[in-house]
Computed example of a mutant assay.
Amino acid sequence: MNFEDESMTTFTCNICNTSNTIEISRLTREEASCNGCGSTVRMRSIVQVLTTELFGNSLAISEITPPRPDICGIGMSCWDGYVSRLAHRIAYKNTFYHQEPRVDITNIDPAMEGTLDFIVSSDVFEHVASPVSLAFENARRLLKPGGVFVFTVPYFHPGERGVITTENFPDLHEWTITENENGPHLRNVKKNGDIQYFHDLVYHGGPGTTIEMRRFSEWSVIEELKKAGFDEIKVYLDPEPNHGIYWPLGHSAPIAAKFSKDTPPAGKKKWFFR
């Protein structure tokens, strides 16, 4: 089926198995489009990419049979709608930055290095404090060789090379977010001792740790993954009509990244740009 030839589409949610008939215009990255679990295109794409990378085919969660408790991985503040279901099929533990079970991707436990078959990070790295390169490197360190990093962030400039990440706070060092009569502001003490104040902060989904630290381009995401040592990188931009997955804007689709045994950071790479 070609989505653009129709105004309506029917799909079966790969998270909850609900059959849906909806307007194709509702298949946007962040709009709930499953009448059963309320999943978005982004949420269903996580299942699409994870199952494809682990099992060779895009599967609904219910199709992971028999269960594979030997496949072990973590999510980073992931949506419970797919975490709770996947946890019955594979060893999937959701983790958080601010509560237990806690994983700080910028300061990982050395005992966890090389222990995971997969990591899922969906719209997290745009909120990680600088330098974000450390978060990408630590994701690779947590994985076993051949393990997969399933990754999403909002990114822009699809297909354009050389467009770097825009850091909202390029000199971030010692910082706090406080409130005054004008609302929240970020106070930063630079390494040289100078003090900066930033107002009109951008939040994703609410205040607090959801502050937008940066805006990625597609090229800069790929470059960060390459520098971290990932040598197989794939952008999942193709639609999957049967599961209601569609990327009409051509950007911010999920990415799968793997590395071979003994691949060092910034080593020789094999990768697939779009």
Rank of each mutant, 00 (worst) to 15 (best):
K261W: 15
A266F: 09
K234S: 11
S260R: 08
E218N: 09
G146A: 02
T152F: 14
H185W: 12
D109Y: 05
G38M: 06
D231E: 09
E167P: 13
T209N: 12
L172C: 06
C34E: 01
G250D: 08
G38L: 00
N14T: 00
E167W: 03
F156K: 00
F125Y: 14
P207D: 13
P66E: 07
A129I: 12
R102S: 13
E240A: 10
M43H: 10
P69R: 02
F125R: 09
G208A: 05
N14H: 00
A139L: 01
F11H: 03
F216L: 06
V103G: 12
E6G: 13
R214A: 10
S7E: 15
G56S: 03
P254T: 12
K258E: 07
Y246G: 11
F151M: 02
I22P: 06
I245H: 06
I177P: 15
T263Y: 08
M213E: 05
K190A: 01
E167R: 07
A32S: 06
R187H: 10
V163I: 11
I177H: 04
L27P: 10
G229A: 03
G159I: 03
P154L: 01
S260V: 12
P241M: 05
A129N: 14
E100G: 13
M112A: 11
P67I: 03
K234V: 15
A253L: 08
E224N: 15
R187M: 07
T176I: 09
T178Q: 15
P101Y: 07
P131G: 07
T115N: 12
T106G: 12
D117Y: 04
I222A: 13
